[in-house]
Amino acid sequence: MPLRVGLLALLLALAGLQYRLLLAPGNLFEVQALKERVGREQATVDHLAERNGQLAAEVEDLRTGLAAVEDRARAELGMIRPGETFIRVIE
């Protein structure tokens, strides 16, 4: 009889732990889904941090270097230096 009571207590404890592990809030499935979400968000953060670094380098180049400003003016505004001839090729 005491063996059955002990076995029953162990089975109830095991059932309670299995419930907590698989069905209760914060279960294994939720934890795995959150880990995957954290991975995706970290990838997004890494990508944005790299982009911010590129933009910061571009801003610094524009602040300090005249060549970058000249390249931008030529490419985006179509500006040319005095004495140069502008030629547009239309396909």
Rank of each mutant, 00 (worst) to 15 (best):
R63I: 11
F86T: 02
Q18I: 10
A68D: 01
I80H: 15
R20C: 04
L3K: 13
R74C: 03
R51H: 11
R72T: 00
R20S: 09
L11E: 10
R74P: 00
G65H: 11
L55C: 00
E36V: 00
G78N: 07
G65V: 03
R40A: 15
A75S: 13
G83S: 08
R4G: 10
Q18K: 13
L12P: 00
Q54V: 14
E41D: 13
L7W: 14
L7A: 14
E91P: 11
R20K: 13
D71F: 10
R88T: 04
A73D: 11
A56N: 05
L8K: 14
E41V: 12
R63N: 13
A24L: 06
V59D: 06
E36R: 10
R37H: 04
A57W: 04
R63T: 09
A13Q: 06
T64G: 01
L10Q: 09
G83M: 05
R81I: 02
E70K: 07
L3Y: 08
E36F: 05
D71W: 12
E30S: 09
T44K: 13
A75Y: 03
L22W: 13
F29D: 11
A56E: 09
E41R: 05
V59S: 05
E36Y: 04
L34P: 01
P2H: 07
A57P: 00
L21D: 09
L22Q: 09
L66R: 09
K35P: 00
R51C: 06
Q32A: 15
I90Y: 05
Y19G: 01
A43E: 09
N52P: 00
L55M: 02
G78F: 12
L10W: 08
